[in-house]
Computed example of a mutant assay.
Amino acid sequence: MIWTLPNILTVLRLLAAPALVVVFAVLPRPAADWLGLILFVGASLTDYLDGWLARAWQQQSKLGTMLDPIADKAMVVIAIMVLAAYSGLAPAIVIPAGLILFREVFVSGLREFLGDVAGTLKVTKLAKWKTASQMVAIAVLFWHGILEHDLSMTIFGLDQSVVAGIMDGSVEDTLGLRREIALIEWTAWGGIGLIWIAAGLTAITGADYFLKARPHLRD
Score class of each variant (00 low, 15 high):
Arg111Val: 11
Glu112Ser: 09
Glu112Ala: 13
Glu112Cys: 02
Glu112Asn: 08
Phe113Glu: 00
Phe113Gly: 00
Leu114Ser: 02
Leu114Thr: 05
Leu114Arg: 04
Leu114Ile: 05
Gly115Trp: 00
Gly115Asp: 01
Gly115Glu: 00
Asp116Gly: 00
Asp116His: 02
Asp116Asn: 03
Val117Cys: 00
Ala118Phe: 07
Gly119Gln: 02
Thr120Trp: 01
Thr120Tyr: 03
Leu121Met: 12
Leu121Cys: 05
Lys122Asn: 05
Lys122Thr: 11
Lys122Glu: 10
Lys122Gln: 09
Val123Arg: 04
Thr124Ile: 08
Leu126His: 04
Leu126Glu: 04
Ala127Ile: 09
Ala127Phe: 08
Lys128Ile: 08
Lys128Glu: 03
Lys130Asp: 00
Lys130Cys: 06
Lys130Ala: 05
Thr131Gln: 01
Ala132Asp: 01
Ala132Gly: 07
Ser133Thr: 15
Gln134Trp: 08
Gln134Met: 09
Gln134Pro: 04
Gln134Arg: 06
Val136Ile: 15
Ala137Asp: 06
Ala137Val: 10
Ala137Asn: 04
Ile138Trp: 08
Ile138Asn: 02
Ile138Gly: 02
Ile138Leu: 11
Ile138Gln: 01
Ala139Gly: 07
Ala139Val: 06
Ala139Thr: 10
Val140Tyr: 05
Val140Gln: 02
Val140Ile: 15
Val140Arg: 02
Phe142Thr: 09
Trp143Pro: 00
His144Asp: 10
His144Asn: 13
His144Val: 03
His144Gln: 14
His144Met: 06
Gly145Met: 09
Gly145Cys: 08
Gly145His: 07
Leu147Glu: 09
Leu147Tyr: 04
Leu147Trp: 08
Leu147Lys: 07
His149Gln: 14
His149Ile: 06
His149Leu: 15
His149Lys: 13
Asp150Ala: 14
Asp150Phe: 07
Asp150Lys: 14
Asp150Glu: 15
Leu151Tyr: 15
Ser152Asn: 13
Met153Gly: 06
Met153Thr: 09
Thr154Cys: 11
Thr154Ser: 04
Ile155Tyr: 08
Ile155Lys: 05
Phe156Gln: 11
Phe156Leu: 10
Phe156Arg: 12
Gly157Asp: 11
Gly157Tyr: 13
Leu158Val: 11
Asp159Gln: 13
Asp159Gly: 12
Asp159Tyr: 09
Asp159Glu: 13
Gln160Tyr: 12
Gln160Lys: 15
Ser161Cys: 06
Ser161Phe: 11
Ser161Ala: 15
Val162Lys: 12
Val162Cys: 07
Val163Thr: 13
Gly165Arg: 12
Ile166Leu: 13
Ile166Glu: 01
